[in-house]
């Protein structure tokens, strides 16, 4: 899901934590699948609400979301099997009570016959999902690839990391969870991806942000220098008269987004002076200052 969590919860971006909690609780009452055993379509909406609250119901995450450091995508909750699924498939008979219709035996001989019997345990039950956590390095997450995980029973599982996978995103491997009971289908393996931070790159939505050190002469005169992109080394052009903090945008050199389009790479320039200031530079600067003083703080 990539819906705006505020919109999903129906609150303003400025809502207090209390208002958000209230709105959430109201929606849980309306949408919790277990409080509405027969309404099939509630599951998805409830999941959206729960995912939204996972973000904005948590002060730290909400602050990050508001600053754009995380987005609503990739915060998806792993699929949950609600109680009603077991109850509806006859798997919860030992919890169910006949108290609600014992009296029907009085109006129907058939019913009083039938409800005297003891119930059989549910024979066909779907298997449980298994959750794993997989650490992936930044470049593998960006470019996609194969990675193996070792299961608790020693078996190995090959996982295809999709291009541009985000930190916290969950991959689902159908049928690789626990086996089902009887004719029940096996559960799924749910793999939560954790992307390790990178020394140079940082992810911002589908864009990749990095910093590039340039010399004072490159900043003044411009020029072509080598920079690191996620796909390898690239040549970038430093415009004449660049300042620290100025950003170069490499179109399409970012991460593959949800809709298949690629983000950009944003390279922030940082002017680095030589380790030691030599006499020649000092003399030149003194002379230059006499006739070309400027004040960038005045703007």
């Amino acid at each position: 899901m990539a819906k705006d969590p505020y919109e999903v919860l129906g609150v303003a971006k400025t809502a207090s934590a209390d208002e958000i909690k209230k709105a959430f609780r109201k929606l849980v009452k309306q949408l919790h699948p277990d409080l509405h055993p027969g309404e099939k379509k509630l599951g998805d909406r409830f999941k959206d609400v729960a995912s939204a609250y996972d973000i904005v119901g948590d002060e730290a995450k909400r602050a990050k979301f508001d600053k754009g450091e995380i987005d609503a995508a990739g915060q998806e909750r792993p699929e949950q099997r609600f109680y009603r699924e077991y109850a509806n498939s006859g798997g919860a008979r030992h919890y169910q009570s006949n108290a609600g219709f014992e009296d029907l035996g009085d109006v129907s001989d058939l019913f009083s016959d039938l409800f005297g019997r003891s119930s059989a345990a549910g024979a066909n039950m779907p298997g449980r999902n298994v959750h794993y956590r997989l650490d992936v390095d930044f470049i593998t997450a960006a470019l996609g690839g194969q990675q193996r995980i070792t299961l608790p029973d020693g078996k190995q599982l090959g996982v295809t990391i999709p291009e541009g996978v985000a930190d916290g995103q969950t991959l689902r491997l159908k049928g690789l969870g626990h086996p089902g009971r009887g004719q029940g289908p096996a559960g799924d393996a749910l793999i939560e991806i954790h992307v390790r931070p990178h020394a140079v790159f940082e992810r911002k939505g589908d864009d990749v942000v990095s910093e590039l050190a340039v010399t004072i002469d490159e900043a003044v005169l411009g020029g072509k220098v080598e920079a690191l992109a996620i796909s390898g080394r690239v040549m970038v052009t430093i415009p004449k008269g660049s300042s620290s903090g100025q950003t170069l945008r490499l179109k399409g050199k970012g991460l593959k987004g949800k809709r298949g389009a690629f983000g950009d790479q944003l390279i922030r320039l940082k002017i680095v002076l030589p380790k030691a200031i030599d006499e020649e530079l000092e003399t030149f600067m003194k002379a230059w200052r006499e006739s070309h003083a400027y004040n960038p703080r005045a703007e």
Partner: peptide
């Protein structure tokens, strides 16, 4: 919980 268990019991029957 008790109401839910009754509903599920009824639904199953």
């Amino acid at each position: 919980l008790s109401l839910l268990d009754q509903i599920h019991g009824l639904r199953n029957e």
